Each structure stands twice: as structure tokens, then as C-alpha cells.
Computed example of a mutant assay.
Amino acid sequence: MKIAEIISCLDKQGEWVNRSLTRDRLLIGDDEQEVNQVIVCWVATFDIIEKAINAKCHFIITHENPFYLESTLLPTNVRIAQHEKKALLEKNNIAVYRCHDLWDLYPEYGVRDQWAQLLKLNFEEAVQDSFIRIATDVNMSTLQLAKHITECIEPYFQYGIQIIGSQTKNIKRLGIGTGACTNIFEMCQKQVDACLVSDDGIDNWGAVQWAVDHHIPLLVVNHMTSEAAGMRGLKEYLNHQITGVEFIYEPNTYGIYNIGKDTSF
């Protein structure tokens, strides 16, 4: 199957995606290539690209931008890495498509809903255009909830999470977001007792300070951790929808570790 046909399967969906201003584009490569296998990943690091080369795979679907930043004002190290990565992809005839805006909010298989499913809590029904989900009847302390989440996320190479605020507060309603879209102010409009956020979905001077002042514990995970299950979901979805092509999920396995003294009380 041509790469363009696979991309078309995705591009023709998603009324929530502004197709005139979207991140979902072919970033590099020839979409007229015929392929029989595709790697799906959260971000196409050099490690992922090497796996594609070894597997003789010529198409990668990535959720995040593998070229770091888009600007004419870039650190020299970033420009060098961009050129090296693009040269490696071109040398091995590997095309890369970014599937981001569609997949964040895609029902059931997408990032938001797969994240909620991974956490094994009772969630209210999703609102289609919202990045927020609300879990009810949690009935755990912040610390108990943190340990529960840690067990859930371990398959995606994060080992422990950060708590900001009380470890002993009883949590009945938990707000979660999607990737970096973890707006605690929107969550707190839903009368949550705590928020599960990504490390790049909050700022210390605004969100964290406000949460501390209002006694809302924050449980913090890595951005990748909260989205990886959704990329596995994309692999499953495409294998169901498209025949004659094998879609393979390749995890980003670099590992996220929380090291420190046990301060539970």
C-alpha cells in the first residue's frame, strides 16, 4: 500500500481537527512509496529510526515532532541534530508522518481515552472536544492514588510519580488531561479533589502556586507516559482498519525515574 493511502485513512477523519492549521502532516519522505510495515511511536528518536532501518521499514508514524523545534532561531546543537536526523531518514528512504491533533481526541483508541483506560478508575463519559476526563469514586488518599498510578504506568517506562501537596487528602474526584493539555483550572471547575498532570502541562508560578493555595494535590507524570498508551491504540486501530500492512508499536524505552527519600506519613 502507498504511504499516501495510509495517511488518507487518517486525514479524512476528525471534525475536531482544523485541517488548514494542523500538526498532522508528512514531515519528510515520499508518500508514493509502497510499504508493507509501519512503525508507530510517541516520538521518532534516533533509537526508533535505527529500529526502522534494521527492520527495513520505510514509514514511521510519530505523535510528537522528531525534529525538536520549529524556528529560524535555534540552538546550534538543535540545528545539527535536525540535519543529522533528516539525513539518516533520507539515506534510508524513511518517510515520517505526524499524527497528533487527530489522535489526541480520537474516541476509544486515542490518547485521551487510552490514558483514562490505563488508569483503571471509574471515569465519567468523555466530552468530545475536551481534553479533560473526570474520575469519580476514587476513594484513596493522594499517596494511595499515586502508588496505584505508578503500577499502571510502569509498562510505559516511568517508575514513580511526583506529588505536589498533601499526601493524606482523601481523593474522591480526580481530573486528568491529555498530554500537555492538563489545565488544572478547567479540571477544578468540575469540583475535583486532585489533578493528574503532565510535567510540561503546568507551571510553578501559576498552576502550582494556585493549587497549593487551594489545597489541590497535583500528581505529576511525564508527557510521554500519559500518551504512550494512545500510540499503542493507534497501532491497534490501524491494524483493524487496513489490511496488507503490519503496524508495529515501538515504545520509547529511555525510562523516567523518581529517586528520593520515602516521606510517606
Rank of each mutant, 00 (worst) to 15 (best):
Glu5Phe: 12
Ile6Asn: 05
Ile7His: 09
Ser8Arg: 13
Ser8Leu: 11
Asp11Asn: 11
Lys12Ser: 09
Lys12Gly: 00
Glu15Arg: 03
Val17Thr: 06
Val17Phe: 05
Val17Trp: 02
Arg19Asn: 13
Ser20Gly: 09
Leu21Cys: 13
Thr22Met: 12
Arg23Ser: 14
Asp24Pro: 04
Arg25Leu: 15
Leu26Gln: 06
Ile28Ser: 11
Asp30Ile: 06
Glu32Arg: 13
Glu32Asp: 15
Glu34Pro: 00
Cys41Tyr: 03
Val43Thr: 15
Thr45Glu: 09
Asp47Cys: 01
Ile48Trp: 06
Ile49Lys: 02
His58Arg: 10
Phe59Met: 11
Ile60Asn: 04
Phe67Lys: 04
Phe67Ser: 04
Thr72Ala: 14
Leu73Asp: 15
Leu74Ile: 08
Pro75Gln: 12
Thr76Leu: 11
Ile80His: 12
Ile80Pro: 04
Ala81Arg: 14
Gln82Ile: 14
Glu90Asp: 13
Asn92Thr: 05
Asn92Ile: 06
Asn93Gly: 05
Ala95Asn: 07
Val96Pro: 02
Trp103Cys: 01
Asp104Gly: 02
Leu105Asp: 03
Pro107Gly: 11
Glu108Ile: 09
Leu121Glu: 02
Phe123Asp: 00
Glu124Lys: 12
Glu125His: 06
Glu125Met: 06
Asp129Pro: 00
Phe131Leu: 10
Asn139Trp: 12
Thr142Ile: 00
Lys147Val: 00
Lys147Ala: 02
Glu151Asn: 13
Pro155Met: 12
Pro155Leu: 11
Tyr156Thr: 00
Gln158Ala: 06
Ile161Thr: 10
Ile163Ala: 05
Lys169Asp: 05
Lys169His: 07
Gly175Arg: 04
Thr178Ile: 07
Gly179Asp: 11
Ala180Asn: 10
Cys181Glu: 14
Asn183Ala: 10
Cys188His: 10
Lys190Thr: 01
Val192Asn: 06
Ala194Ser: 07
Ala194Asn: 01
Asp199Met: 10
Gly201Val: 02
Asn204Met: 14
Gly206Glu: 09
Gly206Ile: 02
Ala207Gln: 10
Val208Asp: 08
His214Glu: 11
His214Met: 11
Ile216Ala: 06
Pro217Phe: 03
Leu219Lys: 03
Leu219Glu: 03
Val221Asn: 12
His223Glu: 06
His223Leu: 02
Ser226His: 04
Ser226Phe: 05
Glu227Asp: 07
Gly230Glu: 06
Met231Gly: 01
Tyr237Pro: 00
Val245Leu: 09
Phe247Lys: 06
Ile248Lys: 14
Thr253Lys: 15
Tyr254Pro: 00
Gly255Pro: 02
Ile256Lys: 11
Tyr257Thr: 04
Phe265Tyr: 08
